[in-house]
Design a protein around this nucleic acid. Structure first.
Lengths: 150, 150
DNA sequence: TAGCTATCTGCAAACAGTTGCATCTGTATT
DNA sequence: AATACAGATGCAACTGTTTGCAGATAGCTA
């Protein structure tokens, strides 16, 4: 996303009554800084590390992340752990294959789901939001004997 | 699932060290009784309604549901609410299109994801567990103006 | 530049679900 | 029928996340 795209986006959000508060800027900055998926707690720690004098309430971080997800700026993904992870959308998009046995994660090209997206739109008129989703199952190694033996 | 299938299943689970306790029977019975997806709390309420004298600890219900999911007897699905819902596998299998705006759920034929399952196995050797999954997005009605306006 | 108001924040309390641990029990073995 | 023990249960404490509410503030309007 270019800078002018970003400005335009903020402007269009403002027009719809959304506000760009210091807290929201800090969360966005943290997400830009950490280039991988981040948990709410990692975002909080990143803000504290960069601005020790500022404190952002965890509730606000959660609410900001939900807002960013709702306006399609970040993805929210479960990787089989006890917390969600978040990532800025628009570059390095991919999906995840999560092994339920060894907890390993394989990142895959998002194009594999394009036919499904098209069919859902055609058949049901449904616009699927398929961004950074997880597909759970068993990886090649864990399939041997383990699907039953676990 | 026929009765002998069921007996066979229990037998094979026992062989692997799993036990069929009264609590587990009650959870299974509740799932058979309610024909739709049920939350842990609904299962608890159903047990209380049928057997007022027996109490099953919520922790045990959660652990039983996780076990049933791990041995592939029930599905665990998020329908966009703040809790998971569970269903017995094997009949009436389907997937869900969940509208993030109006929270409506459309049930769809599971065959739509078969090509994806095959490709994941072929390309990555990954055995996807695609049972009663949810795909989030916007339904036809909510797409008009709402994808942006929300 | 000050005022207005819908939106946002922080705090406390709540909620769904998980974990640690001591005790109990289903089931195989004798 | 009695024994033994891996595996299951119940309780309490904890985790990640959400919600209710009162006070604060972004950003429009004059």
């Amino acid at each position: 996303m270019t800078m002018s795209d970003y400005d335009e986006l903020i402007h269009s959000l403002r027009e719809r009554g959304h506000r760009l508060t210091p807290q929201r800027r800090l969360v966005l900055e943290a997400l830009q800084h950490g280039d991988h998926h981040m948990s709410a707690d990692e975002i909080s720690q990143t803000i504290i590390a960069h601005y020790p004098s500022i404190s952002v309430d965890p509730t606000t971080i959660y609410r900001t992340l939900r807002w960013l997800r709702d306006v399609n700026l970040v993805s929210e993904t479960s990787l089989g752990q006890n917390h969600m992870v978040y990532a800025l959308l628009g570059s390095d998009d991919h999906h995840h294959l999560v092994c339920e046995n060894c907890n390993g994660v394989i990142e895959i090209d998002p194009s594999i789901l394009e036919p499904v997206r098209r069919e859902l739109q055609a058949r049901y008129g449904f616009a699927a939001r398929l961004a950074h989703i997880s597909i759970f199952g068993l990886c090649a190694r864990c399939q041997m004997g383990d699907a039953v033996t676990r």
